[in-house]
Design a protein around this nucleic acid. Structure first.
Lengths: 145, 145
DNA sequence: TTAATCTCTATTGACTCGATAGAGATTATA
DNA sequence: TATAATCTCTATCGAGTCAATAGAGATTAA
C-alpha cells in the first residue's frame, strides 16, 4: 500500500501537470486543489524538489513547477521518492540494492527469483505511466488498457 | 518492501514444502532450518494456519504441515497474509477493496488506472509463483526457469 | 522596506514492527 | 492415568515510522 504521503504526492503532481506551461503555482493553491493539508504538502513538495521532480521559485510570485516535462515523470519516479523502492526485497531493488545478509546464493534463491519477477512487472507498468499520460487528458476518452 | 514477517514466512514455508509428504514438522525445527526466531515464528505460523495455508497437529508428535498442496500455495497467498494486499491503493485491491472517500469518479481517476495496472501486473506474477515451483525442485538441474 | 513565498527542523501522538514471555490447551505414549 | 511434548493465545516492550502541526529562517518581487 502507498503511504498517505504517496497519495498526496500523486494528486499534487497531477494538479501541477495540468498547470499552464511553466507557471509556478503556490503551495497554498496546490494544497487546495489537491485536497492535501498544507503544511504536510510543504514537506512533500520539498522532498520532490530535492529529488529533481519539481523546481521552485522562492519569494513573492513564487511557487512550484515540474522539474522536467510531464511525460518524463513516471509514477515510479514519484512513488520511489515518497514510499521507497518498488521492490519487495532489497536484493531485487534496482534503486536500493542490498544483499541479504544470510543469503547463500542469490543466483539460486527461489524467493529472490519470484520477487525479482514481481519487481520487474511492477516497474514495467509504473515506469510507463507518466504524468503526461495521466493528467486530465486532452484526448478523447482514453480508455487506455 | 516486505516486512520481516513476510520474509520469515516465505522461508518457513519453503522449508515445509521441502518436507516429506504430510509429515508434520515441529516449530522448533522449522525455526532452525529457516533461521527465524522461534517465538516470532510461532505467531507467523499461527496466522498462516488461520488463513488455511497451514494445518497443525497439537500435542506430542505434533507440528505443522502445508494446508494444501504446494502447487496451490502461491507467493501472493503468503504475502497477503503477512503484509496485506498487493495493491498500492485500497481502491484497486481485489482482496481488500475500499472506495477512496473523496474520489470523484473511479472510472476516470488517473491514479487509479495506473495503480490498477500495477496491481494486475504484480498479482499476475505472484499468483503464478508457487511453493511447488520454488521449492528445491526434485527436477534435474534445479536451474528452473 | 515589506509582504509574500518557499525552506528547514523540531515536535507530537498514534500506530506498527520485531521480538520476547509465559500461562493455557491438547495429545501421544509410557 | 500421568506426564512430557507440543501447539495456542494474549500481553508486553522498545524502537521506529507515519501523519500532521508549528514556527522561525531565507529569499524575492514590488
Amino acid at each position: 500500500m502507498l503511504s498517505q504521503k504517496g497519495r498526496y504526492a500523486l494528486h499534487a503532481l497531477l494538479v501541477l501537470a495540468a498547470q499552464k506551461n511553466g507557471e509556478p503555482m503556490m503551495i497554498a493553491d496546490i494544497a487546495e486543489k489537491a485536497r492535501v493539508p498544507r503544511k504536510f504538502l510543504e514537506q512533500i513538495l520539498l522532498e520532490l524538489r530535492k529529488r529533481g521532480i519539481l523546481r521552485s521559485q522562492r519569494g513573492r510570485q513564487g511557487g512550484y513547477m515540474l522539474g522536467r516535462s510531464a511525460k518524463e515523470i513516471s509514477f515510479a519516479d514519484i512513488i520511489r521518492v515518497t514510499d521507497g523502492p518498488l521492490a519487495l526485497s532489497p536484493c531485487v531493488s534496482v534503486t536500493a540494492y542490498q544483499r541479504c545478509e544470510d543469503c547463500e546464493d542469490e543466483a539460486t534463491c527461489a524467493i529472490r527469483k519470484a520477487l525479482l519477477a514481481a519487481r520487474d512487472a511492477t516497474a514495467a507498468v509504473l515506469e510507463t505511466q507518466t504524468l503526461a499520460g495521466a493528467s486530465s487528458t486532452p484526448r478523447r476518452t482514453r480508455r487506455g488498457a
